[in-house]
């Protein structure tokens, strides 16, 4: 599966089910450095809640350092799939999986997998901003402290760097000791991104990160995703199709648990291959 992007324009990385489709890397000028390798690969991967199959036998590769959007109507399994990647579904007692889901070639649901270490590498930002009721500093430092960083200097450095990456540093640098709940919704969400970045993940999972925000704050988050593209593999679940087309390189469309279509974003939105996809993106149902 290991292939380098520079060799060819037509680098096939996915998929077998849902009829064979080819995914193309973007044109040269939009490509990211060292990216494009399969970072997470699903093979016949299903998620069940009790008897209900919420995600049905998905086969797909998520490419490293690109932004992949996941769209689809409510209840189609898109969030479930996202949460399966860092095993957040473990918190739901009746949830189990079948098939395999690989991260860097290792099975996420393998016998020897430590979900705690896994979540460190695969960070997640949630639908509603969920800062802890602590100071801004403590929020960011929470992760590094968990993983053993105790030195105050080092912590300060990490906090500053993470906040800068999340484009929040200038707004909060004077009040790092204030309660994070005092920030605006958009700032809280960027704080959550910064908090996730502070543990240096490889993958960022964004679960409808802007659904609770106003348009101005949404634009800021989208800018942030643009900034982070190329450094992290980003998966973003979104209800908003304009958002998907604006921020992502690739788009997955889920419908009733099936991965219906997975293609470069431009292609999916301009020339969908599947009738259901077309109906959805043209707004015939939602």
């Amino acid at each position: 599966m290991q292939m380098t992007a520079e060799e060819k324009d037509t680098n096939r990385v996915a998929t077998e089910s849902n009829a064979t489709r080819e995914i193309f890397l973007p044109p040269e000028r939009e490509r990211v450095k060292d990216g494009g390798t399969p970072h997470v690969s699903a093979k016949n991967f299903s998620v069940f809640y009790g008897n209900f199959e919420a995600v049905k036998k998905v086969n797909a590769d998520i490419l490293s350092r690109y932004v992949t959007a996941i769209i689809g109507p409510s209840g189609c399994g898109k969030s479930t799939f996202l949460r399966a990647i860092n095993r957040m579904n473990d918190l739901i007692p009746s949830c189990y999986t079948s098939g395999s889901l690989l991260f860097d070639g290792e099975d996420i649901y393998g016998r020897y997998t430590d979900e705690v270490q896994l979540r460190k590498k695969i960070g997640m930002v949630f639908q509603k901003p969920n800062p802890f009721p602590k100071s801004i500093f403590d929020n960011i430092a929470y992760g590094p402290r968990l993983h053993g960083v105790k030195d105050k200097k080092a912590l300060e450095e990490i906090v500053e760097k993470s906040l800068q990456k999340a484009a929040l540093w200038d707004e909060v640098k004077d009040r790092l000791d204030r309660n994070a709940l005092g920030l605006s919704g958009g700032q809280q969400q960027r704080l959550c991104v910064a908090r996730t970045l502070a543990v240096e993940p490889e993958i960022l999972l964004l679960d409808e990160p802007t659904s609770a925000l106003d348009p101005k704050a949404t634009a800021k988050i989208e800018d942030l995703i643009e900034e982070l593209r190329g450094s992290y593999t980003i998966l973003i679940v979104t209800h908003n199709m304009q958002q998907a087309s604006r921020v992502s390189d690739y788009t997955m469309f889920y419908y009733e648990g099936d991965l219906v279509e997975y293609a470069p974003t431009k292609q999916l939105f301009t020339n969908p291959r599947d009738q259901v996809t077309e109906d959805y993106i043209t707004g015939r149902f939602s």
Partner: peptide
């Protein structure tokens, strides 16, 4: 952004 964690590094 270049100094960010390298994939699988």
């Amino acid at each position: 952004m270049a100094e960010a964690t390298a994939t699988g590094g």
